[in-house]
Design a protein around this nucleic acid. Structure first.
Lengths: 331, 331
DNA sequence: TTGTATGCGTTATCAT
DNA sequence: ATGATAACGCATACAA
């Protein structure tokens, strides 16, 4: 919590260089005018003293920070790593500093983190999804900073939203299975309460089945975050109850990969006995003996475009980046 | 960069509540003494105005922040997600705020990020590994904040180090393969230049082979970050040149998983034709039809223990948390 | 081109 | 228990 108090300050540098404080400030920020000679003198003093500017004081004086706060639900899902990489890559090029935090898919934790992060007066706050607590929304609106909601556009954004429609993805996945001649279709999913985007996909999937005159043959939903183990166990449990299925939709590729492993382990022929399809088109699922059919989502691009909109001071808007069904050998 | 200037300040709250500024400050931080009546008045005003304390001003006035900066090489490797989750879990319980950044395994980027985060006067900086640029080390030492180096103890730490010996892990892995009766042993790895810990494991592995009177039969090293695809391609390339291998050590589980997928795809019997062993014991590799032999590393615990040492103001030290060879069906 | 003075929103040190 | 007031380290008018 506390700090060595006697760090070098701008005043020290000014004194050492024999110039005024504002001159040092100008040189360091390369703003305003100064002679080359004094620039050298100042830089020399900076080097010699090992001066590190105090951004806290700077931010207070100029009322504004280069900080962008990014709140993601989880880090164990590579999807969010991709998203953050897209964001930071774009932000860094324009001298902004990204600050990450993890909400664990918990709206209350998100609210606490929003409060904590707003106290540092970021220029923008980026969140995943459109569902937030009332307190979160109120604080964000009152903060006066830009708000960017990511990876979902099914709902009412606060300011800028960049992503795609999970509902539509679910619908199209259903249509794809139906087009492949499947009719006894089941779902293996996770944690629909907390992962609202996965819930939207599921709901779209049901709509898609209904549009084809079908209903879901069976479902298996575990009450935990998605994982390979949960997908494997989920499919095993499902097949124990329903031996006659011909296709399974997984809530995402982690789950689908687990299902695929189950098929490999028990010698189920894919897609002969069973078609599998997941969501996100993770790299790993492109390298299984049979690539797993999935839906490619624009994660890095979502991050990039979101950061660009913020940097360019774009007006409030919703940007749909779409998604792509990709075949694979499991369908 | 800029900010709505007219946010509610502590002064506004004081005025609205009809008390002095210092009273508001005391109430908000629950520090010093005040009557219950004024506490109510203040809180009411805070609520009504939607006041969010400005931590920037607070930090400047009290010279000290609750910030802990955490620099990791990558987010696409779940290992670092585990590490960060261990850290934040412990930090949150003690009101510290974690701030993450990603170095991409690039020492120059690490140096730039260290400079950037030090400008915010964090209470501690946590880095992965013991190898840093001279500039990074100089800045950190001069900063006066605690420095914690993570997931490696093979070297000279700056302050606190928590992790285990990669060199020892490599040695023991070699011994394990030898004990299993393997003698034509190869290595499939990634990016030894940048990922110094993986290089240390490899070097320990060679030592382990030498101790058993063996030498490495072959190696295949790709010049990219580790990935399932690289492991798959790497093993394929290796086997094309050397058909007579009986074991392969992979630089980590991502690579090993790719190798395993290759074996599945071409019908190579594991461990009959070939033994496989990886590193990290990722969850996903416990769910493949045959669990992949690996080395379990204390990632979450490293984060927890590191955070605890910092929080408890422990003296400079190196903490070895060890690792565990785990069998699996591929050996 | 350069220096001086004021203010940013808090915390902390004094009085009262 | 409470209220003035002086730092905190820097940016920025403004003056020189």
């Amino acid at each position: 919590m506390d700090q060595k108090t006697s760090l070098i300050t701008l005043t020290d540098v000014a004194e050492a260089a024999g110039v005024g404080e504002s001159t040092v400030s100008r040189v360091l920020r390369n703003h305003g005018s100064f002679s080359e000679k004094t620039r050298m003198r100042v830089m020399e003093a900076v080097e010699r003293l090992g001066y590190v500017p105090n951004r806290i004081a700077g931010a207070l004086a100029s009322t504004g920070t280069p900080l962008v706060a990014i709140l993601v639900p989880s880090l164990s899902n590579i999807v969010f790593a991709d998203l953050m990489s897209g964001i930071t890559r774009t932000l860094e090029a324009r001298q902004r500093q990204a600050v990450f935090a993890v909400t664990d898919y918990d709206p209350e934790k998100e609210e606490a983190l929003v409060a904590a992060v707003l106290a540092w007066r970021p220029a923008a706050v980026m969140l995943v999804g459109l569902e937030h607590s009332e307190g979160t929304r109120r604080m964000l609106r009152a903060s006066g900073c830009r708000i960017v909601e990511l990876l979902d556009i099914d709902g009412e954004p606060l300011d800028i939203a960049v992503g795609f429609s999970h509902r539509a993805a679910g619908r199209e996945t259903a249509a794809r299975l139906v087009a492949a001649g499947r009719s006894k279709i089941a779902y293996v999913g996770h944690d629909l309460e907390r992962d609202t985007r996965s819930a939207k996909r599921f709901s779209g999937f049901l709509e898609g089945l209904a549009a084809a005159g079908l209903t879901l043959a069976a479902r298996e939903i575990c009450d935990a975050p998605s994982s390979v183990g949960a997908g494997k166990a989920g499919l095993a449990a499902l097949l124990a109850r329903h031996a006659d299925l011909d296709a399974v939709y997984f809530s995402n590729d982690d789950m689908a990969l687990g299902g695929y492993f189950h098929c490999l382990a028990v010698g189920l022929s894919v897609p002969g006995d069973l078609s599998l399809i997941g969501f996100n088109a993770l790299d790993i699922c492109r390298h299984t003996p049979q690539p797993i059919a999935s839906v490619l989502t624009p994660r890095i691009e979502t991050g990039q475009r979101a950061a660009e909109l913020f940097l360019n001071d774009a007006p409030a808007q919703t940007l749909d980046l779409g998604f792509t069904l990709i075949p694979g050998g499991t369908l």
